[in-house]
């Protein structure tokens, strides 16, 4: 017991913070200082933490999903070349420009709205002010935020399949015939912007969730990555109904479920699919991809896929 206490005493209390703090002090702050941008120093630590969490999540996903895909694959391919572009998408989304842009845009929008409300004597809402009993129970509050955000994301996702113009963009995500855990962030940039606006609207209505639980956030993102993995893994009859599994999400990406005929829209919790009767736990695994999507969208370069998404949308607009 005493030995365990000794070992634990050497484990850093805040490993993510310590790494992010070191990066902040040795790289980010000196950079901001030289660039004359020290007014952003308050926020920059948040950006650094997001990047550290993003990298950690990628390492975790890699460590778990690569063995799963290698030793328990659902499909075997002769080449993994089409997967490379998904790796690029992941870096861009988790540690690249996109999270910083999202952070800045959300911050700017929040400032505008909060300022507008403050000038009229209002204080913006948060879950804890809507439901006062939540205050002092941050884990419960976080769980509720996660449920609400996943619920609203279910509807965003479902609507993105419902409207052909929106789906023409979302098809970039579905066009991948070699779906792996890297495919989670494979999205058209306009589709990403629409997701961001959707999240922003919800965030402004119920406040931003407390972000002091990086491990929980990492786990949620990990579930989303894992659900795209090319593996036979299922969480079992009950587990598949509690958390979105690779098997459950593969049904959504199956060639028979592309576009408006889809099912299993949930990102983290299958609950919403069960409630709104869009869950399909019975369908056997099928190959993934969208047979209606242009080939460039499936196997093109990043830019070719992005351009193809726009061309596909224009065609959808013309009917």
């Amino acid at each position: 017991m005493q030995m365990m206490a000794q070992v634990l005493s050497h484990v850093p209390a805040h490993p993510f913070n310590d790494v992010a703090g070191w990066i902040e002090q040795t790289a980010v702050l000196p950079l901001l200082y030289r660039a004359g941008l020290m007014q952003w120093s308050e926020l920059s630590f948040g950006w650094t933490l997001v990047a550290v969490y993003g990298i950690t999540q990628m390492i975790l996903a890699y460590a778990v999903c690569v063995p799963l895909e290698r030793f328990h694959p659902l499909e075997r391919w002769t080449t993994s070349k089409p997967v490379l572009v998904d790796v690029f998408y992941t870096f861009l989304a988790r540690v690249g420009v996109l999270p910083i842009m999202t952070f800045v845009l959300f911050y700017a929008a929040q400032v505008q709205l909060d300022g507008f409300l403050a000038d009229r004597g209002y204080v913006p809402p948060m879950l804890e002010t809507i439901i006062p009993a939540l205050f002092g129970h941050p884990v419960v509050t976080f769980a509720l935020y996660a449920l609400i955000l996943d619920f609203t994301d279910y509807w965003r996702h479902r609507l993105s399949h419902r409207f052909s113009i929106w789906y023409a963009l979302h098809a970039v995500h579905h066009a991948q015939r070699q779906m792996t855990f890297w495919s989670d962030d494979r999205n058209h940039v306009i589709d990403e912007v629409l997701s961001f606006l959707w999240f922003m609207l919800i965030g402004l209505l119920i406040g931003i969730p407390p972000l002091q639980f990086p491990l929980l956030i990492l786990m949620l993102r990990f579930v989303e990555s894992l659900s795209h993995a090319n593996t036979t893994l299922s969480f079992g009859k009950i587990g598949d109904r509690l958390l979105v599994s690779p098997r459950f999400h593969r049904t959504h990406h199956g060639i028979l479920a592309a576009g408006q005929k889809s099912c299993n829209y949930g990102a983290v919790f299958p609950l919403w699919d069960i409630i709104f009767k869009t869950a399909d736990f019975a369908r056997p695994p099928t190959p993934t991809g969208d047979p209606t999507a242009p080939e460039a969208m499936a196997t093109g370069t990043y830019l070719a896929q992005q351009w193809s998404g726009i061309a596909h949308t224009v065609r959808a607009l013309r009917g």
Partner: peptide, 10 residues
């Protein structure tokens, strides 16, 4: 006495 959106008590 300050108002808050969607919240009963200030």
């Amino acid at each position: 006495p300050r108002r808050t959106l969607f919240a009963a008590p200030a």
